[in-house]
C-alpha cells in the first residue's frame, strides 16, 4: 500500500446493546473509536488507548474486553454491551445502583469501564472474596482512588444477584 493511501472501508454489522448497527470501517478503527466516534456512544471511555487502564471495557459476546485493542472489523457480527446498555427501561443495573450507593467514583471517567468490567466479573463467577475482587478488578485503574468503594459496590451487587 502506498505511503499515503487510506485503506478501504469494510462493511460490518454489530449488535450494540441489542440493536443491529451497520457501519463501514477502515480496518484500523478500533471498537472503541467506532463506538465513540461513529455510533456516538461516548459512555465507553478512552483513558490510555493501549489496554493499560480499562476505561474502555465493554462486553463482547458477554465477555469483558478492552475495546481500545479490538479492531472493529474483527468483531463483525458480535454482540456488544456498553454502559449505555446496562440499565433496562430506566431502571439502573444493580451494579450501577451499587456504585451510587457506595460512592464508588468521583470524576466518573473510569466508571463505565469499572461497571462493565464488574458485570464481566460477576458473569465469570470467579471472585469469591474481597481479595479476589481486588485482583480481578485490577485491570481497571481509578485515579480518584475509589477502589475500596468499588469493591464494596461489587460486593453489594454480588450479594443481591
Amino acid at each position: 500500500m502506498a505511503d499515503t493511501t487510506i485503506p478501504e472501508r469494510i462493511p460490518i454489522n454489530l449488535v450494540v446493546n441489542g440493536e443491529r448497527r451497520a457501519l463501514e470501517v477502515v480496518p484500523w478503527t478500533t471498537l472503541l473509536d467506532a463506538l465513540r466516534d461513529r455510533l456516538e456512544l461516548t459512555g465507553t471511555k478512552k483513558g490510555c488507548d493501549h489496554g493499560q487502564c480499562g476505561a474502555c471495557t465493554v462486553l463482547v459476546d458477554g465477555r469483558r474486553v478492552n475495546s481500545c485493542l479490538t479492531l472493529a472489523v474483527m468483531k463483525d457480527g458480535a454482540e456488544i454491551t456498553t454502559i449505555e446498555g446496562m440499565a433496562r427501561d430506566g431502571t439502573l443495573h444493580p451494579l450501577q445502583q451499587a456504585f451510587i450507593d457506595h460512592d464508588a467514583f468521583q470524576c466518573g471517567y473510569c466508571t463505565p469501564g469499572q461497571i462493565c468490567s464488574a458485570a464481566g466479573l460477576l458473569a465469570e463467577g470467579r471472585a469469591r472474596d474481597a481479595d479476589e475482587i481486588r485482583e480481578l478488578m485490577s485491570g481497571n485503574l481509578c485515579r480518584c482512588g475509589a477502589y475500596p468503594n468499588i469493591v464494596a459496590a461489587i460486593e453489594q451487587a454480588m450479594s443481591r444477584s
Binding site: 471495557t57 468490567s117 485491570g139
Partner: peptide, 9 residues
C-alpha cells in the same frame, strides 16, 4: 499476567 480483560482477549 495482565488483566482479566486482556486475558479474555
Amino acid at each position: 499476567g495482565a488483566s482479566a480483560q486482556l486475558r479474555n482477549m
